[in-house]
């Protein structure tokens, strides 16, 4: 009986620790590995997203917000103290470590490196997490989105973005 109870407790502890690990999104993990002052971080958490849903009048943006549960933009601009290349290498290494993801877009040229990764893909073609990395000579930008985002709708984001540019 004791062995069974110890086994159950050990299993629960293991699940708990694993869950904590899973619960952390990419941006949280990445921020743990860099000095705090180097990055400019803009976060839109779930409660703010809920508030935005009520506030938003644009239907397309509201549809996107409905699938969103967390959004964060990390910006690291180049400076005398920061070797941006090392950060770009670091972020790519972190993406590999983050888990089994699918590379949706990758652009590599002399001027920049862009990577769009999706994680936790479900059967109905939805992504649990999206990581976008853009690294050029002047800045490293990381966009981290979590929720239940339709991958097919990602292409429609350009239309949404255009409509906002017009405004």
């Amino acid at each position: 009986m004791k062995k069974i109870l110890t086994g159950i407790i050990a299993l629960l502890l293991l699940l708990g620790s694993s869950k904590a690990g899973w619960g952390q999104n990419f941006s949280e993990k990445f921020l743990e590995h860099i000095p705090k002052k180097t990055a400019i971080v803009a976060t839109v958490n779930s409660s703010m997203i809920e508030a935005l849903k009520k506030w938003e009048v644009d239907e397309e943006l509201q549809a996107f917000l409905n699938e969103l549960s967390f959004l964060r933009i990390i910006t690291i601009p180049t400076s005398a103290d920061i070797n941006l290349d090392s950060y770009c290498i670091k972020v790519r290494e972190q993406v590999k470590k983050h888990g089994q993801g699918e590379e949706l877009l990758s652009i590599n040229d002399k001027q920049r490196q862009t990577l769009l990764m999706i994680f936790d893909k479900t059967a109905n073609n939805k992504a649990g997490e999206i990581v976008f990395i853009n690294c050029d000579e002047s800045v490293l930008v990381i966009i981290n989105i979590t929720g239940n985002i339709s991958i097919g709708n990602l292409g429609q984001l350009s239309n949404l973005s255009k409509s906002f540019k017009k405004l």
Binding site: I73, I130, I143, S161
Partner: peptide, 20 residues
């Protein structure tokens, strides 16, 4: 500010998808 952050994120991803 939150809305602007979301729109910026959408814009960047969309722009790169288009370029891709």
């Amino acid at each position: 500010a939150a809305r602007e952050t979301v729109i910026t994120a959408i814009g960047m991803i969309a722009e790169n998808l288009q370029q891709g």
